[in-house]
Amino acid sequence: MAAGGDHGSPDSYRSPLASRYASPEMCFVFSDRYKFRTWRQLWLWLAEAEQTLGLPITDEQIQEMKSNLENIDFKMAAEEEKRLRHDVMAHVHTFGHCCPKAAGIIHLGATSCYVGDNTDLIILRNALDLLLPKLARVISRLADFAKERASLPTLGFTHFQPAQLTTVGKRCCLWIQDLCMDLQNLKRVRDDLRFRGVKGTTGTQASFLQLFEGDDHKVEQLDKMVTEKAGFKRAFIITGQTYTRKVDIEVLSVLASLGASVHKICTDIRLLANLKEMEEPFEKQQIGSSAMPYKRNPMRSERCCSLARHLMTLVMDPLQTASVQWFERTLDDSANRRICLAEAFLTADTILNTLQNISEGLVVYPKVIERRIRQELPFMATENIIMAMVKAGGSRQDCHEKIRVLSQQAASVVKQEGGDNDLIERIQVDAYFSPIHSQLDHLLDPSSFTGRASQQVQRFLEEEVYPLLKPYESVMKVKAELCL
């Protein structure tokens, strides 16, 4: 049975990233139509530049190519590739079939990587351009969430054990800070992308030097003109047959890092959902379990974690691919890159769409948070109580021993009897502590235990987050809708 299948058929496997999760716009960027249309555009740009620099290419040939950029006979191309065992030459023939007058000058002087690699770089750039505003929107939604809850005390956790208090907004800023680093890295790697350009079979530009009869300047002009037509500021000066596969490492490393950030955020949300302090959106008709109707599973956060793990592992592909590119190139890269580049971007696209949807509907339960604080705060307040007693004339050592005994009794009630923490009640009825009984409410005010959390939130948002989001103001209103 021949390899390949009808990918629109229910009898043929289709990647869930495309069929179930990723956005239509990201799927289109990695589609065959987008790819092969870009090949034709690159052939047109090459012909236009070659004509401008004096090669015998007519206006009629150029116009014929322009008129057929979208006229792609995919069936013919597939048949040609089956016959020739070469995808680029299959599309040269297919393009030439609908451009008979231009057929002889299509791909003039070029090698397969002229269309293959340059198209990949265009796709990487455009895919990054799709991700950047999506990530900015996630940051914006979380920034709104953090600002609104900047002063809401909550129990902090280290080692997932109760620690000092923080605020809900401050905790959210930990998430935002990681995503801001990801946004900066995505922008950097996007701006650092260079075009492969017009380089020939081993990167020496020998074929173009021959076409222009040894004119170095025209060869350099050709490279520059096509690079500018493709919208790049610069091209690699040095290439082998391909652009260095280190570029793929750079791009997928940034995406993998984004995956790590999203995994951490969504894990926190899942843990908070278990504590009943916070939940992701839950639709009115949504079913959490087929057997347990009360369940409210954090399905979206779980999906993000599941896909983020996949995204983090994909960076190993370009690392290994770059390491086995012998001399000017081997074909070890080809099949692998067809999979890992598309999957990385479709996965990143999915987790950003999902995280935006989550961040637009996060639900906080202040009463649950308050109750958990009441359970733990008495123990945390013991040092403040000791200091207040010393100020009232008591002995630190005597007070410490009193607190120690009462704390152990209260802990026994919590752990052995399943009761509430009654340390404060014990202190309130103990005559030894009568000098500070009137101060206990103040000493137990949760806001006095959150330090500068709310001020940190305000400063972080104003100095770091809002300036970073400013270039994306025009796209901030787009909502994230999930079908599944």
Rank of each mutant, 00 (worst) to 15 (best):
E343P: 11
V219R: 04
V475F: 11
V405R: 14
D445S: 15
D223M: 06
L482P: 07
T313D: 04
T204Q: 15
A47F: 01
F157G: 04
P467L: 11
Y13N: 12
T158A: 01
R452G: 08
I249E: 01
Q51L: 09
D182I: 01
V247S: 11
I385C: 08
H310K: 12
C98P: 08
E401W: 07
T347L: 13
L406A: 11
I339T: 15
D223N: 10
E148R: 12
L461G: 03
S289A: 02
V315H: 10
M278R: 02
C399E: 06
W45H: 13
D182V: 02
E376R: 03
P471E: 15
R149Y: 09
K187D: 12
V414D: 02
M26Q: 05
T382D: 02
I57N: 02
T201K: 02
S323F: 02
S140T: 15
Q164D: 00
K276L: 08
D87F: 00
H217D: 11
K367S: 11
T201L: 01
Q456W: 01
L135A: 09
Q51I: 08
E360K: 03
Q409N: 11
V475G: 15
I287F: 01
G8Q: 15
I436Y: 05
A78L: 09
M225N: 08
R37W: 10
P467R: 09
E280Y: 04
Q241S: 02
K402V: 06
S434G: 13
G451Y: 02
H217C: 11
M26L: 08
K224A: 14
G231F: 06
I139H: 02
S12R: 15
F157R: 05
S448Q: 15
R300Y: 10
K187Y: 12
G4M: 15
D317Y: 00
I373Q: 01
R234L: 11
P293I: 04
T166Y: 01
C173T: 09
A308T: 13
A206C: 12
M65V: 09
G200C: 02
L44E: 06
R85S: 02
V247C: 12
E79K: 13
F282D: 09
K402A: 09
A344E: 03
D178R: 02
L362A: 10
A335L: 03
G361A: 15
G240C: 06
K402P: 04
L42H: 05
T227Q: 10
G109K: 01
E425M: 10
T313P: 09
E343L: 03
I351C: 12
D191M: 11
L319P: 03
T167G: 04
K415L: 08
R338F: 00
H263S: 10
L443F: 07
L222H: 01
D215Q: 15
R20C: 00
A163H: 00
H86S: 00
R137A: 15
I249Y: 08
I287S: 06
V363G: 05
P446Y: 04
Q416A: 11
F30P: 00
A256T: 09
R329Y: 01
K470I: 08
V198M: 15
R337H: 04
D178K: 05
E280C: 05
V189H: 07
I339Y: 04
C98A: 11
V88K: 01
F30I: 09
I403G: 05
T354N: 10
D191G: 07
F36S: 14
S257M: 09
N71S: 11
A453V: 07
M389F: 08
S261T: 11
L142A: 06
I72F: 12
D422P: 12
V414H: 03
L128N: 14
L482F: 15
L84Y: 10
Q397E: 07
E60W: 08
I72M: 12
E81R: 00
H442M: 13
E148M: 09
M26F: 04
P56R: 12
Q221E: 13
K147A: 13
E213C: 14
M299G: 06
D117N: 00
H217G: 12
S301W: 01
N118F: 00
E343D: 15
G419I: 07
N185P: 07
D182Y: 04
Q161M: 01
P16L: 13
I358W: 04
L108N: 07
V363Y: 07
L255F: 13
C113P: 05
H107E: 00
R149T: 12
L311W: 02
Y294T: 03
Q161K: 01
D191Y: 09
A2R: 15
I373F: 05
G109W: 00
F327Q: 11
C172V: 14
E279D: 04
H442N: 15
L271D: 03
P100R: 10
K224D: 15
A127M: 01
S448Y: 14
T321H: 00
L108T: 12
H93E: 12
F345Q: 05
G418I: 03
T158P: 00
V88P: 05
R329W: 01
M387T: 14
S359E: 07
T244A: 13
Q177C: 13
E60P: 10
L406C: 10
A256P: 03
V324L: 11
V465F: 04
T242I: 09
E280I: 00
A453C: 12
E280G: 04
D333R: 00
V413S: 13
L211K: 02
I403P: 02
Q41N: 14
Q428F: 12
E343C: 05
Q456T: 06
D332S: 00
W43Y: 05
